[in-house]
Design a protein around this nucleic acid. Structure first.
Lengths: 116, 116
DNA sequence: GATGCTACCCCGCATGGCATGGTAGCACTA
DNA sequence: TAGTGCTACCATGCCATGCGGGGTAGCATC
């Protein structure tokens, strides 16, 4: 398996990714997995997506619509609510802040050694 | 308290931040807290830093040197080992990948609605 | 001797990613 | 018509991590 910190680094970003995907289009869990599988560093499994969607629905960030699938069980299509759009905005802002900070830290040149 | 997802988004990035600070200069836990307190979105408490340092030391990413403080108990100065530098490089690379992916996702324009 | 900063640490909780395993619908084919 | 395989959903349980709360001890100042 991959190193554990890879997963840890992703925490929170998965939710941001899912909200972002749902912002772009209404879709369902299984399809989100396939979509994010193509996004390097954000690939997730079904074990991850369904709890995320359940949480987001519980928080009223997304609403659901059930529709039949031509290839299998019914699909649960999700779309962002206003709460979800607000959450996405907030997370995107936080993301921008953290991103800038981390990048600044990584770019900081080595300091001269302190004495003792 | 702040929303929980703010902490979640930080998971893993704290370790990257600490490694980055230690890459810049040898220093001790309490000082890292003060340093990161000035970095927007990466502020952590002592409850966070000491477990992180203990983990990094256990993983041989950092080595420790004890030295007296003029203002209080002994300080434990940490510096990166080669393992730590490798870890920092790996995490920085992963960070760059994830960052690019998230930014690309956030920039993706809204797709036309699928039918049914 | 009380307050306050410095500097370290432990315990316990909540959160969230993820492995594992399960169910069920549909299509194809041997 | 049984088997295989993809689709699509879900529950359970583990583990790592951030962090609140609390503790100890050194030193300085008033």
């Amino acid at each position: 398996m991959k190193e554990a910190w890879v997963s840890q680094m992703r925490k929170g970003l998965v939710e941001l990714g899912v909200l972002s995907v749902l912002h772009n289009a209404e879709t369902y869990g299984y399809h989100i997995v396939q979509t994010l599988a193509l996004v390097e560093g954000l690939a997730i499994t079904e074990s991850t997506i369904y709890p995320v969607l359940a949480r987001l629905e519980e928080d009223a960030c997304i609403s659901v619509r059930v529709a039949p699938s031509p290839n299998g069980p019914q699909r649960r299509y999700y779309r962002l609510t206003q709460v979800g759009r607000d959450r996405l905005s907030a997370m995107a802002a936080q993301w921008a802040t953290v991103k800038a900070s981390v990048d600044r830290l990584l770019a900081t040149p080595r300091q001269p050694e302190a004495i003792s």
